[in-house]
């Protein structure tokens, strides 16, 4: 397999790897490192790539494992929190400010979730994978995934409502 072929195969899901890594590792730099590491590993196994049934799911699993290892290791204690820039919305100014505020609050809530739920939310609500695809990555059965997903979504809702009612953040 040539380098160009490999890049062509990898490019469609490179950003998905990055987003999953970023969800777990928070820092932009760490996520870029993780993506690079996973792609290099994949490249070094290029002769075997034809035997994988689903390269994307395989790469996602590698990313997940890499990030969880990273979190377990000591280096995780040096992670910085990086704020993302949120897009402008076409709502009125006051509403916009309010919404921005709530949106970054959602981010905070998501950071509080356990890694497993973070991964599932990321794969489902952001990458819109179906349950079979998620099952390949996280190695759980669809029922367990559904329960975890429901729990994570309800947790976000509950925290949002709490904030809505008391105005605390």
């Amino acid at each position: 397999m040539k380098q160009a072929d490999f890049l062509q195969m990898v490019m469609p899901f490179k950003d998905k790897l990055y987003r999953l890594a970023k969800r777990l590792l928070v820092s932009n730099e760490e996520a870029e490192d993780a993506t690079q590491e996973v792609l290099l590993k994949l490249w070094s196994k290029k002769t075997k790539i034809g035997t994988y049934s689903n390269v994307e799911a395989f790469a996602m699993t590698m990313t997940k494992n890499y990030c969880l290892d990273k979190l377990k290791s000591k280096q995780a204690s040096n992670l910085k929190l990086v704020h993302s820039n949120y897009k402008d919305e076409n709502t009125s100014l006051q509403k916009e400010v309010e919404l921005k505020d709530s949106v970054s609050f959602v981010h905070q809530i998501m950071d509080e979730l356990p890694s497993q739920q973070k991964i599932i939310i990321q794969l489902r609500d952001i990458e819109q994978y179906d349950f079979e695809e998620i099952a390949k990555v996280v190695d759980m059965n669809p029922t367990a995934i559904r329960v975890a997903l429901s729990r994570a979504r309800k947790y976000i809702r509950q925290e949002l409502i709490k904030k809505h009612n008391y105005g605390i953040s």
Partner: peptide
């Protein structure tokens, strides 16, 4: 409306992109 930030945030996160190129020359 209280659910809006949640979906808004998911949509934002979907737009994130990796900016680094992949150097395919392993140092190993």
């Amino acid at each position: 409306q209280e659910y809006q930030p949640m979906f808004q945030h998911f949509a934002n996160l979907r737009g994130e992109q990796s900016t680094r190129n992949v150097p395919l020359k392993p140092r190993k």
